[in-house]
Design a protein around this nucleic acid. Structure first.
Lengths: 332, 332
DNA sequence: CTGAAAGCGCTTACAG
DNA sequence: CTGAAAGCGCTTACAG
């Protein structure tokens, strides 16, 4: 900056003014400074700037398993929104999602003086542990469910599950079986709740849901059990990867989909349309979730002086995508 | 830091020494300082530190489409390795991968004074544009192919493709058709090269490869074309997502896999084992790629004073996973 | 083993 | 509209 000032023949604070778009600079001076900047390829030192402004422009993100479609897409949406707002994203990915691992990740990010946190770790225990953190920085929980004391952005999981279940009931199924996600996951809970509500509203019998780990393998194993039960005519599976496993198990045991059993998934991964058969599923707008997360965090950052307001909750709707894995039931 | 010093009854540079693990501190003093740190919940200001040390401990990563399995997994591996080495990761994800977009992303990261870059953007034009960058910071290209002037970490794409093609030839197929990835992608080129070499070595006829965009949809559309060609008895598809589309197209048109046509993919996504039929494919160790990328970048960072050495290239082997989508050909 | 001093490269009131 | 001064919170030689 001193070099720029010398070449432009001004003081370094005039350079600073130009850099910060300060209005009180004569146009001719501004041009001279800009030319000197270009000539030297000068770039402002971010550490010095952060030191004096007390703002790092860094948002810490705690994510996990970037191999799962949902979290990965959300991360993409967050990143784009952050960059559009001039923020940098410092990302920590977790192998195992426990309360301790999340705290460790946040401690790590705190070393970098992040201005706020976005945590994509939709487990009840993790979200509960996010209240009253010692960092003094706002935290937004993505898919944080109904957490009452935390700013949350999430997809309307119960609503999506309700849509899926209604769809099957309307096709004429007497009831709908459910392969849920893992216990403790808020998405699992939300989807179970929506499924249950649809059944109860329709007066349909509610069978205890099976529970898997989101992975295709467990979908496959649970699918083998469903294949044996001749009562089953329709299954709402809590995500597409497990639905793939269910489809595979059904196919292997000679149960025809959708003629004998209808299957609905959740997520609408890019592959879903090309499963055998193409999967009816519930789509979530992950990139919207990402954008709203950043928007919420930024609003929290701005009003951090007046922390009187209640935590906000932003819910993104889900929508049903009908394909060929669902039909009116015939006898098995 | 001043507060800590006051409570511990020492000067602030003694606090600094304790923080940095400097040996010349009396044990008793050290304990006193540590207690004061705990009491205050003190955390060192990273900006001030970076300003004086001229090290931000931040690595910039340019990634793209976190929805693709390979790049997403690689990012995970990079993040873990970086954190283990005490570095932070600042991530920019690209929507479209062009040379300009990559440059823009790197410019953005430069604002944050990153110490080095990892670019996961395996297009020839992008990689070519990475040489002679104006940042004066080391750059590692992940999946940068054979780029002669750039440090690169990549999976042995030709080797993997060779394995897949050999496997089909050994099963008795007269030749192997190929659905390649998009032009300009180094992974596409590498896989084409390995496939071609295996065919040529065996004296098998080489049919011009079809080319898709990695997505299941184009796999499906190209699969429809392959289904019509009764000469085709085996297909090596450049990734699993397109292979899914091919499988779907074949199934839809009544072509049995593997009895009539064998299919091999590339990537070994978690779903591959549950495709119909379970897919024979080539596995890449993405997390290993991530780790080696960080290791290479760190070594570059250390020797940045003596830039005489040639750029390094680190190749991770691929391996074939045999499942049920391949068999000895019978007549169609 | 420990402290007083200087300085990293910026921004922000304060003068003029 | 522009410059001289102070200070953000650290680390690094330099003394002692």
């Amino acid at each position: 900056m001193a070099d720029v000032a010398r070449i432009a023949g001004v003081s370094h604070q005039t350079v600073s003014r130009v850099l910060n778009g300060h209005p009180n600079v004569k146009a001719e001076t501004r041009t001279r400074v800009e030319m000197a900047i270009d000539e030297l390829g000068y770039r402002r030192n971010s550490s010095a700037r952060a030191l004096v402004t007390r703002r790092t422009s860094v948002i810490g993100v705690v994510a996990f398993d970037p191999t799962l479609y949902g979290p990965a897409s959300t991360l993409g949406g967050i990143e784009r929104a952050a960059r559009a707002a001039g923020y940098f994203l410092s990302v920590v990915t977790l192998q195992t999602v426990t309360r301790e691992a999340v705290r460790e990740a946040m401690d790590y990010l705190a070393q970098q003086s992040v201005e706020g946190y976005i945590v994509i770790a939709p487990l009840r225990t993790v979200v509960d542990g996010l209240v009253d953190l010692p960092y003094g920085r706002p935290v937004v929980a993505v898919e944080g469910g109904q957490a009452p004391d935390l700013p949350v952005v999430c997809v309307d999981q119960p609503g999506g599950a309700y849509l899926a279940t209604r769809h099957l009931l309307e096709l004429g199924h007497r009831t709908v079986h459910h392969v849920a996600g893992p216990h403790d996951w808020l998405e699992s809970e939300g989807r179970v709740a929506g499924w249950r509500r649809a059944l109860e509203e329709a007066g349909a019998p509610v069978h205890e849901p099976l529970s898997g780990d989101w992975r295709p393998r467990e979908g496959y194993e649970l699918g083998r059990r469903l294949a044996e039960d001749r009562e089953v005519t329709s299954v709402f599976v809590a995500n597409d990867q497990m639905a793939l496993g269910v489809l595979r198990a059904l196919g292997e045991t000679g149960v025809r989909v959708p003629q004998e059993v209808s299957v609905v998934g959740f997520d609408d991964v890019p592959e879903a349309e090309f499963f055998t058969p193409p999967l009816t599923t519930v789509a979530q707008d992950f990139s919207e979730v990402g954008q709203r997360s950043i928007a919420l965090l930024l609003s929290l950052l701005e009003e951090s002086d007046s922390p009187g307001t209640a935590p906000k909750r932003d819910v993104v709707p889900a929508r049903l995508i009908t394909r060929q894995s669902t039909a009116t039931p015939s006898t098995r």
